[in-house]
Computed example of a mutant assay.
Amino acid sequence: MRRTPLLLAAASASLLLAGCGAATSDAAPPVAPAAATQDAPALADGLLPAEQFAPGSTVTGVTADDLAGALGAAAGHDPGQVTITPSTCTDALDAARAALGDPADVDDAAGQYAQVGFGGTAELLSTGGPAQTAVGTLADAVAACPTATLATDRGQAVVTFGAVTRPDLGDDAVVVPVSVTLSGGPVSGGSALLGLVSDGDRLLALATGAVGTTVPDQAAFEALLAGAQQHAADTLG
């Protein structure tokens, strides 16, 4: 979970920005998949089968406790450790945090990460909490802050959001391209795509990214997002 960040948990611009800032951290060991038992949360059954990801991917599961810990850490992050400019982005971040509410309000969550090379794709399903508001919150935050500069004692990141698209999926959906330019770290940056789909009390978040000059294929990503939404709907109702 620590490796992909908060791209996995990114149900808002605030979490996405936090994840981009974490891209310079040292790689952490992948989270071990949860044991397949009869006690496994039903929500996890709605995640894409491993074979749906890129050939050669290593797919690891993320437990609800892992997700709750990451979301709680993001919500409790000391904003004094990161300077965000311009001020409109700080305002958008504050508004997003307020709109998303308390991470403890999420009833259930399940996720996985498919790593291939220096990139990968993360998928998260959650129920409760911001499921019905996250799509609009992200779209509003990107409109208010198309480019942000994050400065920390470890370096600086410039995060730029591309043109927002609204696929006809679930009750509401959004796809946002993201590019990150880093200074003061071992890599120069990377690109990512973030998709959110709200369907009743369930939220699907899908993100894919890679470091360097590789740019994710948006058409392929949107097809995977549609497949993930259909699989969750077929499996979970």
Results as ranks from 00 to 15, higher is better:
Arg3Gly: 04
Thr4Gln: 09
Pro5Gln: 10
Leu6Ser: 12
Leu7Ala: 11
Leu8Arg: 01
Ala9Phe: 03
Ala9Trp: 01
Ala9Met: 05
Ala10Val: 11
Ala11Lys: 04
Ser12Ile: 02
Ser14Phe: 04
Ser14Met: 06
Ser14Lys: 03
Leu15Arg: 04
Leu16Glu: 07
Leu17Arg: 03
Leu17Ser: 08
Ala18Gly: 15
Ala18Phe: 01
Ala18Leu: 14
Ala18Ile: 07
Gly19Ala: 08
Gly19Trp: 00
Gly19Gln: 02
Gly19Cys: 06
Ala22Leu: 05
Thr24Phe: 03
Asp26Ser: 15
Ala28Pro: 07
Pro29Asp: 10
Pro30Arg: 02
Ala35Pro: 05
Ala36Asn: 07
Thr37Glu: 15
Gln38Phe: 15
Gln38Asn: 15
Asp39Ile: 10
Ala40Tyr: 00
Ala40His: 02
Pro41Tyr: 01
Leu43Met: 11
Leu43Gln: 06
Ala44Gln: 01
Ala44Glu: 01
Asp45Thr: 09
Asp45Gly: 13
Ala50Tyr: 01
Gln52Asp: 11
Ala54Gln: 07
Pro55Glu: 11
Ser57Cys: 13
Ser57Phe: 08
Ser57Pro: 12
Thr58Asp: 10
Val59Thr: 03
Gly61Arg: 00
Val62Trp: 00
Val62Thr: 06
Ala64Phe: 01
Asp66Asn: 08
Asp66Trp: 01
Gly69Gln: 13
Ala73His: 09
Ala74Gly: 13
His77Val: 14
Pro79Asn: 08
Gly80His: 14
Thr83Glu: 15
Cys89Lys: 02
Thr90Asp: 12
Thr90Asn: 11
Asp91His: 10
Ala92Phe: 01
Ala95Ser: 14
Ala95Thr: 14
Arg97Lys: 09
Arg97Met: 09
Ala99Val: 12
Pro103Phe: 00
Pro103Trp: 00
Asp105Ile: 07
Asp105Phe: 04
Asp105Trp: 03
Asp105Gly: 08
Val106Ile: 14
Asp107Pro: 04
Asp108His: 05
Asp108Val: 08
Gly111Thr: 03
Gly111Ser: 06
Tyr113Trp: 11
Tyr113Ile: 11
Tyr113Pro: 06
Tyr113Val: 09
Ala114Thr: 03
Gln115Pro: 10
Gly117Asp: 09
Gly119Ser: 11
Gly119Asp: 02
Ala122His: 01
Leu125Met: 08
Gly128Val: 13
Gly128Asn: 05
Pro130Lys: 05
Pro130Phe: 02
Pro130Gly: 09
Gln132Trp: 01
Ala134Met: 06
Thr137Asp: 15
Thr137Gln: 13
